[in-house]
Design a protein around this nucleic acid. Structure first.
Lengths: 198, 198
DNA sequence: TTGTCAACCGATCAATCGGTAGATTATGAA
DNA sequence: TTCATAATCTACCGATTGATCGGTTGACAA
């Protein structure tokens, strides 16, 4: 028999992510979250020990999704160009399908908000960014990309993609795949005329 | 004779921007700001009427700098390609030289934090983004850029540049000009090998 | 029917917050 | 020196916050 705990626990993290996204981590109160769940705020502490723990779980889940998907692609796709493209698609799709989680993680994960688990979460972030950078380096060493600082190239890629939390809407015209394809063409070939082949 | 007011007023906005950047708008208290200035927190209200007003001033200054610089470039540079490149350099340099202001504006300006002045500030943001988009459109119509969604291209450009608040340090190896040049080459020509001319 | 424990509640607390009111001091002009 | 006022202070308030604790409810197993 499935205990009710796990169901409510999931609803708790969903509601937290939504409210942290809407109001910010500090401005969203435990009372807000409790009301969204239809319980009293004291009941929340049956599931977690502190407000920080909610943010921690959200950030760890986000990084976990990204890293797991990336590792799967890296081990299964041998062609460096295709691998990098797949990583971009993966990142964009996960972001679009988990907009609240990504928004909170990318905007609210700061030393002040994170407190004791800052190092832990920032470590996960650096690990994932390292995977992206390595994929860029592989593509360059395979002769696909020109000589360039892969750290900066990675920042450019992450910037394009992560900035989507500022404007992406599921109701928009373009699908996540189409948006990913746009970033891919722009990153590989640029915007200049006479270069539009992928 | 210059009254002390204006000097302290400037120090107030500087300290606010620094603390909002460090702790976030909600987490940074008026007491924190007062201590940074060496005065009591009640004295702050001699200069402003509310905490929100501090955020408003920071955001308006940021948008004002960007828009003013952009308008100057647009009216003085006629070549569409050169104009777009100059806009990128301008944006990057302003961001790097006013890291606190930009970080607070890009991260803390939300409907919840802004409250009554949300529409005002978001209007300024949209106005500036409109200038960038128009510059992209001009370059495309001049035959410099290929057919593409200038809204998405604008988001890509703004994403690359604005994401810098997450990693740029004045102590880094690259200068703001060099970083701007990197974005320019990447945006125009892409990262693929055999395309590295600007 | 009874005992157990998951799940939730009511009441409360200490701390912190943004903001106000009125008194006080510092400063430059007359 | 006097006076206006710029600039800052002390003291305080009401509201909200995250968190604690002991009690209550209800379903299921024995």
């Amino acid at each position: 028999m499935e205990r009710k705990t796990n169901v409510t626990r999931e609803r708790l993290f969903e509601a937290s992510a939504r409210l942290f996204q809407e109001k910010g981590f500090k401005a969203a109160s435990m009372e807000d979250i409790a009301q969204a769940l239809g319980i009293r705020k004291s009941s929340i502490y049956y599931y977690i020990n502190s407000k920080e723990e909610l943010l921690r779980e959200i950030c760890i889940r986000t990084m976990g999704m990204l890293t797991k998907a990336a590792e799967g692609i890296i081990t299964s796709v041998s062609d460096p160009e295709e691998r990098l493209k797949r990583l971009i698609v993966s990142h964009v799709e996960l972001l679009c399908e988990n907009l609240d989680l990504f928004t909170v993680t990318l905007r609210e994960l700061t030393p002040t908000n994170a407190g004791p688990f800052w190092e832990e979460t920032v470590g996960l972030r650096d690990k994932y960014e390292g995977l992206i950078r390595q994929a860029i380096r592989d593509a360059r060493e395979a002769g696909i990309l020109r000589e360039m600082d892969e750290k900066l190239a990675g920042f450019a890629l992450l910037g394009m993609m992560n900035w989507m939390i500022r404007w992406y809407s599921p109701n928009g015209e373009k699908s996540p795949r189409e948006l990913a394809q746009f970033w891919i063409e722009l990153f590989f070939n640029g915007a200049r005329k006479g270069k539009d082949y992928v």
